[in-house]
Design a binder for these strands. Structure first.
Lengths: 140, 140
DNA sequence: AATGAAACTGAGACTCTGTCTCAATTATAT
DNA sequence: ATATAATTGAGACAGAGTCTCAGTTTCATT
């Protein structure tokens, strides 16, 4: 269903609906969790797509602009994205064993941060909290 | 004073005290706040040093191992380091206008994170909270 | 259906951060 | 003074990402 929304976005911008964009959007929509540009490339290629890295990197900003995905700020040294869902803001717990990403949101945490900013006369705009550790599946 | 400590560390490891290491440690000790490897390189070169990038990158792990500096986890896509101080763990507020980094620590924040981890059966090991925004100097 | 302009594509050059190799140099124990 | 092991800079290399360019494709218009 969301595919049509992206197609509409592309048309409205006067851009063109190409096989490559089609393949990329489909792959993004069917994959779960976080993904990196190169993972997307490898997955598509493994499914027989002839798409190039350049097209992946060119299409990602369009997916972001259309609101279908958003960049995830991670301390990891390359880009990560995730599909945008209703409950937009959340932070992450990342399992260093299996790579699993747990999303969480805490109103008290948000409020606490606000008061800490106030104390420093700092106008907080956005934040990124990443808790690294071991998830219950891996803690044997 | 800390320079001697590093020299002692180097000697104890059976490594050598070279002009390049000397220049690098001195620069790190006199600079304030966070720094990136390439900044260090540019600063040293601008002061007339003939040090190479390779030596910067080779010396940084020694500085970390000696306890003089520590890597800072940032969502920025390259490495950042800071001098190690007494009050070790802290998080950061980063001004998107001037790049200023404000360190802060909050016990309630730490406790709240612990309880959030418990709720997810997640064994938190370390975390990184980065609040991006505008500092009081830049908020005009 | 044919056309044509503008958008798009893949290949590969390029940038940036960081690592590695190698021959020449240097610190240090003797 | 010497030997030897560590260190150095230059430059090749690697991975993520950007950019250019010539050839291709979409799509609105005939």
């Amino acid at each position: 269903m969301e595919k049509q929304e992206f197609d509409a976005f592309i048309s409205k911008k006067g851009l063109k609906l190409t096989r490559e964009r089609d393949e990329i959007v489909s792959e993004v929509l069917c994959c779960q969790g976080h993904f990196a540009p190169d993972e997307l490339f490898v997955q598509l290629r493994s499914k027989g797509s002839k798409v190039s890295r350049a097209s992946i990197y060119r299409t990602i900003p369009l997916l972001v602009e259309s609101g279908l995905i958003a960049e995830v700020e991670r301390t990891d040294k390359h880009a990560h994205y995730e599909k945008v869902s209703k409950n937009s803001h959340h932070d992450h717990m990342i399992c260093t064993v299996c790579g699993r990403v747990i999303e969480f949101y805490s109103k008290p945490l948000e409020r606490l941060q606000e008061s800490l900013c106030k104390r420093e006369n700092f106008k907080g705009v956005r934040h990124c909290l990443e808790i690294m550790g071991v998830c219950e599946n891996c803690d044997g």
